[in-house]
Amino acid sequence: MSSFAHADFEAEEKFVSSFADNAINILGSDTLSNADRSSQFTDLVMRSIDINLISKFVLSKFWKAASDEQKTEYLEAFKEYFIASYASKLDQYSGEKVVVISSEASKKYVIVKSHIVRDGTDTLKIELDWRLLNRDGETKIIDLNIEGISLIIAQREEFQSFLNNHDNDLDALIDKLKSINTKN
C-alpha cells in the first residue's frame, strides 16, 4: 500500500488541475476571438462539470413541483446563466496558477484541495476545494468551494430566497435568469 493517501485520487487531482489550467487559459487568451473563447469554455464546462445534476439540486423541491415545460425552459436558462457565472468567477484568476495540494474521500465524494498564491507574494493564498462525484464511471466536478464558501450551496440559498419572495413562482425565476443572460 502506498503511504501517500492522496495517491489514491491521482486521477481526480489531475482532472481538477487540467480543468483549472484550461479554464484560466481559455478565459485569459488574447488570441481567441470572443466567440471561440465562449464556445471553448462552454465545451470545457459541459465536459467537466455535472450541470444537469447541479441545475436540479439548486432548485431543490421546486424542481419536483415543476411542469415538464418549466423544466425544459429552466434547464436552458440555467445552463447559460451557470456557464457565464463560472466564467466570471474563474476569470478573476486569469494569469494565475491553481496548485493542487491534496485530496480526500468524503462520503461519496472526492474533495480535491488546491490553492492560488496571490500575485507578488509567497504566502497569501486563496484556498479552492473542488468536490467531485463519480457517476456511471464518469467523474465530474459538482462544486467549487472558495475559502470555505460553496458556490452551489450559495446558489441554492439564493434561488430558494428568490422563490420565497416571489410567491414560489418558478416562472418568475426563469424570467429573471433569462434577463440576466440577455444582459451578459
Binding site: E157, E158, S161, F162
Partner: peptide, 11 residues
Amino acid sequence: NSVDYYAAVRS
C-alpha cells in the same frame, strides 16, 4: 449575476 444579491451575500 445574482437573482437575489441579498441572499447571495447572506449565504
